[in-house]
Amino acid sequence: MCVAVPGKIVSIDEFDMAVVDFGGTTREVSLAMVEDPATGEYVIVHAGFALHKVNSEEALETIELMRQALDDSNF
């Protein structure tokens, strides 16, 4: 349905526009739809808009879910 990829906020201007680094590719991205964005934070971007701020707990939670699924000896 929608290509969206995570990237790191590199800089923010006064119009809520940011430069986001997607790992060697940068693009101008609107931050109008995330709360209190800050440089250095990770956001998930779709069609030029940041739609979600990724926090490290959520990222760890995903890795933990995966670990559980892999370790679970039952189905």
Binding site: V3, V5, G23, G24, T25
Partner: peptide
């Protein structure tokens, strides 16, 4: 491929 090629491809489809 370079990381920058991969990331551009992922970003822009």
């Amino acid at each position: 491929m370079e990381q920058g090629v991969l990331s551009a491809c992922e970003l822009l489809g």
